[in-house]
Deep mutational scan, measured.
Amino acid sequence: TGYYDVLGVKPDASDNELKKAYRKMALKFHPDKNPDGAEQFKQISQAYEVLSDEKKRQIYDQ
């Protein structure tokens, strides 16, 4: 599964769309709200870390 799929956004998503999707998913799977969501929360955080950084995103998109 790709990072875009993890966040539920298209590859041409804007920074604002990425942030909005990340916040929505992070709230849904945060371990405090969803004890079984810890692994998914890590994936969401990693996806956002890469896609929100312009240089990392360019490398990922290659």
Rank of each mutant, 00 (worst) to 15 (best):
T1M: 12
T1N: 10
T1I: 13
T1H: 13
T1W: 15
T1Q: 12
T1V: 15
G2Q: 10
G2F: 15
G2S: 15
G2M: 12
Y3R: 00
Y3F: 11
Y3H: 03
Y3Q: 00
Y3C: 12
Y3G: 01
Y3P: 02
Y4T: 00
Y4P: 01
Y4Q: 00
Y4W: 04
Y4I: 00
Y4A: 00
Y4K: 01
Y4E: 02
D5F: 09
D5C: 15
D5E: 13
D5A: 14
D5G: 09
D5L: 11
V6E: 02
V6L: 14
V6G: 00
V6K: 03
L7T: 03
L7I: 02
L7F: 01
L7S: 01
L7E: 04
G8D: 05
G8L: 04
G8K: 07
G8S: 02
V9A: 05
V9F: 01
V9Q: 01
V9T: 03
V9C: 09
V9D: 01
V9Y: 00
K10A: 10
K10G: 10
K10R: 13
K10W: 06
K10H: 10
K10Q: 08
K10C: 15
K10P: 11
K10D: 07
P11W: 11
P11T: 12
P11F: 13
P11C: 12
P11Q: 08
P11M: 07
D12N: 12
D12T: 12
D12H: 06
D12V: 04
D12Q: 05
A13S: 04
A13V: 12
A13N: 00
A13D: 03
A13Q: 01
A13P: 00
A13E: 00
A13R: 00
A13H: 03
A13L: 05
S14F: 05
S14G: 07
S14Q: 02
S14I: 02
S14R: 05
S14H: 05
S14L: 05
D15E: 13
D15M: 15
D15L: 15
D15Y: 15
D15I: 15
D15V: 14
D15G: 11
D15F: 15
N16T: 12
N16H: 15
N16E: 15
N16Y: 13
N16A: 15
E17P: 00
E17F: 00
E17G: 02
E17R: 01
L18R: 01
L18C: 04
L18K: 00
L18A: 02
L18I: 15
L18H: 02
K19V: 07
K19I: 09
K19S: 08
K19M: 12
K20H: 10
K20L: 13
K20I: 14
K20E: 15
K20S: 13
A21H: 03
A21D: 01
A21C: 06
A21R: 00
A21L: 00
Y22G: 00
Y22V: 00
Y22A: 01
R23P: 04
R23G: 12
R23H: 14
R23A: 15
R23W: 13
R23L: 15
K24S: 09
K24E: 15
K24Q: 11
K24M: 12
K24F: 10
K24P: 03
K24D: 15
M25C: 11
M25Q: 09
M25R: 02
M25I: 06
M25S: 06
M25F: 06
M25K: 09
M25N: 05
M25A: 10
A26Q: 10
A26E: 08
A26P: 00
A26S: 10
L27W: 10
L27M: 07
L27P: 00
L27G: 08
L27C: 14
L27I: 11
L27Y: 09
L27V: 10
K28C: 13
K28L: 13
K28W: 07
K28P: 01
K28Q: 10
K28V: 08
F29H: 05
F29P: 00
F29N: 04
F29W: 08
F29T: 01
F29E: 02
F29Y: 13
F29Q: 04
H30K: 05
H30I: 02
H30N: 09
H30S: 09
H30E: 06
P31I: 07
P31N: 10
P31H: 08
P31K: 07
P31R: 07
P31D: 05
P31Y: 08
P31S: 06
D32C: 14
D32V: 08
D32Q: 09
D32A: 11
D32S: 13
D32T: 10
D32I: 08
K33Y: 14
K33T: 13
K33I: 14
K33V: 14
K33H: 14
K33D: 07
N34A: 05
N34G: 06
N34S: 07
N34I: 05
N34P: 06
N34K: 05
N34D: 10
N34Y: 09
P35F: 03
P35V: 06
P35Y: 02
P35I: 05
P35H: 05
P35R: 06
P35A: 06
P35K: 08
D36Q: 12
D36V: 06
D36M: 10
G37L: 11
G37R: 07
G37N: 11
G37S: 10
G37W: 13
G37K: 13
G37Q: 08
G37V: 08
A38Y: 11
A38E: 10
A38I: 11
A38S: 09
A38G: 08
A38N: 07
A38P: 04
A38R: 08
E39L: 09
E39T: 12
E39F: 08
E39K: 09
E39R: 07
E39W: 09
E39Q: 09
E39M: 08
Q40A: 11
Q40G: 06
Q40D: 05
Q40K: 14
Q40H: 12
F41K: 01
F41Q: 02
F41R: 03
F41N: 01
F41S: 02
F41A: 00
F41L: 07
K42N: 08
K42G: 05
K42E: 08
K42R: 11
K42D: 07
K42V: 07
K42H: 10
Q43S: 07
Q43G: 03
Q43M: 14
Q43I: 15
Q43Y: 13
I44W: 01
I44L: 07
I44P: 01
I44C: 04
I44G: 00
I44S: 00
S45V: 15
S45N: 12
S45W: 12
S45C: 14
S45Q: 15
S45T: 15
S45H: 11
Q46M: 13
Q46A: 07
Q46N: 08
Q46L: 14
Q46C: 12
A47Y: 01
A47N: 00
A47P: 00
A47T: 00
Y48A: 00
Y48V: 01
Y48W: 11
Y48M: 03
Y48R: 02
Y48P: 01
Y48G: 03
Y48L: 05
Y48E: 01
E49P: 01
E49L: 10
E49I: 10
E49Y: 13
E49A: 13
E49D: 09
E49W: 12
E49M: 09
V50T: 11
V50A: 09
V50G: 02
V50S: 03
V50L: 07
V50K: 05
V50D: 03
V50P: 03
L51A: 00
L51I: 01
L51M: 02
L51P: 04
L51Y: 01
S52Q: 06
S52I: 14
S52D: 00
S52C: 12
S52G: 08
S52L: 09
D53R: 06
D53N: 09
D53K: 09
D53V: 07
D53I: 03
D53F: 05
D53T: 07
D53L: 04
D53H: 06
D53C: 09
E54S: 14
E54Y: 13
E54K: 15
E54Q: 12
K55M: 09
K55N: 08
K55F: 09
K55R: 14
K55A: 11
K55W: 05
K55G: 09
K56H: 06
K56G: 04
K56E: 05
K56D: 05
K56A: 10
K56T: 09
K56V: 03
R57K: 05
R57Y: 04
R57Q: 07
R57A: 05
R57E: 04
R57D: 01
Q58Y: 13
Q58E: 11
Q58D: 10
Q58L: 12
Q58I: 09
Q58C: 12
I59H: 11
I59K: 08
I59A: 11
I59F: 09
I59N: 09
I59L: 12
I59T: 09
Y60W: 03
Y60T: 02
Y60I: 04
D61P: 05
D61R: 05
D61C: 03
D61Y: 05
D61I: 06
D61A: 05
D61N: 07
Q62G: 08
Q62P: 03
Q62S: 09
Q62E: 10
Q62V: 08
Q62R: 11
Q62D: 08
